[in-house]
Amino acid sequence: MKDIKIWDKVLIVFILILWQIIGMLEVVPKFMLPTPVEVIKALVKDWSLIAQSACISLAEAAMGMGFALLGSFVLAIAMDRFKIVHQMLFPICVVSQTVPTIAVAPLLVLWFGFGMTPKVLLVFITCFFPLLVGLVTGLDSADKGVLRLYKSMSATYLRVLFDVKIPYAAESFFAGLKVSASYSVVGAVIAEWLGGEGGLGVYMTRVRKSFQFDKMFAVIIVISLLSLLLMKLVELLEKKALKWKQ
């Protein structure tokens, strides 16, 4: 098992070396494909600006996620409690997912300007659905026998919700949260592409326009790392919340 685990790292190192060699041999023009070393240099050089931009994007992502969490909880519970709400709204939520985020972003900018609102809204739209699906599926997965047991003891809906349904939904919720966490940063960056005062998306647009592809790759790495970091954070939370599974 340990041997298998090491191979993915070996592969990454191999790709990086190959990339460095291709860059050094200038198989692809240097301004189009900078070498990993050049990317790292760009990252170090522009670190303060990238870090500042990352803070803005993270703030947008966090706000969007926060609203998505709140909204998905309220709607999932309403869907669980009233089947008619589920029948009415769930198909609309599914259809809404067929609309690509990138197509919605310009509309949001048009409606809400270049401030923070369209960014937060886009993150909300991106994160809401995976969270909602995770919660709806999870709430529905509660053991039917346990629900009958609670019913036989005349438990109220709220008690069943907090005692049974939400704990049973935890696993599925965290699966949705992991997906949403990775989407949130990307959602914020996409929204920033279309204009704004700061953030990784704005930084990306600026360096792209000035053909500074080393900085472009540097910011891509930062976005990936941030997404990975958020996913790890969710994993930690999951471990803490589902300690009975260990």
Binding site: D143, V146, L149, S152, S154, V164, P167, L242, W244
Partner: peptide
């Protein structure tokens, strides 16, 4: 419901 104790077929202990 709630007037009679009912133990169903499986133990139905909540795993969490």
């Amino acid at each position: 419901s709630g007037k009679i104790g009912y133990m169903q077929q499986s133990d139905l202990l909540l795993p969490f």
